[in-house]
Amino acid sequence: MKFLCVACDEAMKFVEVADTAHGDTFSAVFGCPRCGRRIALLANPWETQLVRSLGVAVGGRTTPHAPFELVRERLANSRLMWTEEAEQRLARIPEFVRPMVRDGVERHARERGYREVTSEVMDEVRSSMGM
């Protein structure tokens, strides 16, 4: 999709996008580099969902690609993924308390909206327990 400033016959350039990760619409602002006129593309919920489903970012990517990012962001009932380092730390905990610790760490991560369990998340849990 491209936008043309009809008065200047000039291709408009992307300026900014207003997109909340879980909102049902997004707005993208484009401007004419010659006359400065701005327009906004207002996507309806279906268009928004389709763009998200394709795994592309309107306005370009601002963060590097993360493994399984679309699945982890969009799968509503997904497990929380752990980094290898975090798993190794968990493996050092006595086996009989491991499931309880895993549940506690995951609860902490979910409550804060984290997408993965890292070693830093485990540190946070430790300090929140005063350890």
Partner: peptide
Amino acid sequence: LLAPDAAPVEWDAPA
């Protein structure tokens, strides 16, 4: 990747 509760695949979709 799914939570172990036998729920079907559900995508977080506001539409």
